Amino acid sequence: QGDIVVALYPYDGIHPDDLSFKKGEKMKVLEEHGEWWKAKSLLTKKEGFIPSNYVAKLN
């Protein structure tokens, strides 16, 4: 089961498979690959890669 993270900063995706998000948006982490994680937005239901240093895990 994936962790839920919250965006600390907004992110505008650079690549087509990036997931753009707004500050405060919550996402479910699907896979962790070093600095880039695959996640699904709980708001938009879209999936893509996010920079892990832009988010914090919720406990």
Rank of each mutant, 00 (worst) to 15 (best):
Q1H: 12
G2M: 11
G2Q: 10
G2H: 12
G2K: 09
G2C: 15
D3H: 15
D3P: 10
D3C: 15
I4E: 05
I4T: 07
I4C: 07
I4K: 03
I4S: 03
V5W: 14
V5A: 07
V6M: 07
V6G: 02
V6R: 06
V6A: 04
V6Q: 06
A7P: 01
A7Q: 00
A7S: 05
A7Y: 01
A7E: 02
A7C: 05
L8S: 03
L8P: 00
Y9H: 08
Y9Q: 10
Y9M: 11
Y9I: 08
Y9D: 04
Y9W: 12
Y9N: 05
P10N: 15
P10F: 07
P10M: 08
P10V: 07
P10H: 13
Y11Q: 01
Y11R: 07
Y11E: 01
Y11L: 03
Y11C: 05
Y11D: 00
D12I: 15
D12W: 12
D12E: 14
D12F: 13
G13I: 03
G13M: 06
G13A: 14
G13V: 04
G13L: 03
I14V: 13
H15N: 12
H15W: 11
P16T: 09
P16D: 10
D17N: 13
D17I: 07
D17L: 12
D17A: 11
D18Q: 15
D18L: 08
D18W: 10
L19W: 02
L19M: 06
L19R: 02
L19I: 04
S20A: 08
S20F: 04
S20W: 05
S20E: 05
S20V: 07
F21A: 01
F21P: 00
F21K: 01
F21V: 05
K22F: 07
K23N: 04
K23A: 11
K23G: 05
K23F: 07
K23S: 07
K23C: 11
G24N: 06
G24E: 04
G24T: 02
E25N: 02
K26S: 07
K26I: 15
K26Q: 11
M27N: 00
M27A: 01
M27S: 00
M27Y: 02
M27R: 00
M27W: 01
K28Q: 14
K28P: 00
K28H: 09
V29M: 06
V29P: 02
L30V: 07
L30Y: 07
L30G: 03
E31N: 07
E31W: 10
E32T: 13
E32S: 13
E32M: 15
E32N: 12
H33G: 10
H33K: 11
G34C: 08
G34Q: 05
G34I: 04
G34V: 05
G34K: 06
G34T: 05
G34R: 05
E35W: 14
E35Q: 13
E35H: 15
E35V: 13
E35T: 12
E35L: 14
E35K: 13
E35M: 13
W36M: 10
W36S: 06
W36D: 02
W36C: 09
W37T: 08
W37L: 15
W37N: 04
W37F: 15
K38E: 05
K38W: 15
K38R: 13
K38Q: 07
A39S: 03
A39V: 14
A39R: 00
A39E: 00
A39T: 04
K40L: 12
K40P: 00
S41Q: 03
S41C: 05
S41W: 02
S41L: 04
S41V: 03
L42T: 05
L42M: 09
L42H: 04
L42W: 04
L42G: 01
L43Y: 10
T44Y: 03
T44S: 09
T44D: 04
T44N: 06
K45D: 14
K45F: 15
K45G: 15
K45Q: 14
K46Y: 06
K46N: 09
E47N: 05
E47S: 11
E47H: 07
E47A: 08
G48F: 01
G48I: 01
G48S: 00
G48C: 02
G48K: 01
F49A: 05
F49C: 12
F49S: 06
F49L: 11
I50Q: 00
I50E: 01
I50L: 05
P51R: 05
P51K: 05
P51F: 04
P51L: 05
S52I: 09
S52L: 06
N53I: 09
N53W: 15
N53K: 13
N53P: 05
Y54C: 08
Y54Q: 05
Y54T: 04
Y54L: 12
Y54E: 02
Y54P: 01
V55K: 02
V55F: 14
V55Q: 01
V55I: 06
A56W: 09
A56N: 06
A56G: 07
A56Y: 13
K57I: 10
K57E: 06
K57F: 13
K57A: 09
K57G: 07
K57P: 12
K57N: 07
K57W: 13
K57D: 06
L58P: 07
N59I: 13
N59L: 12
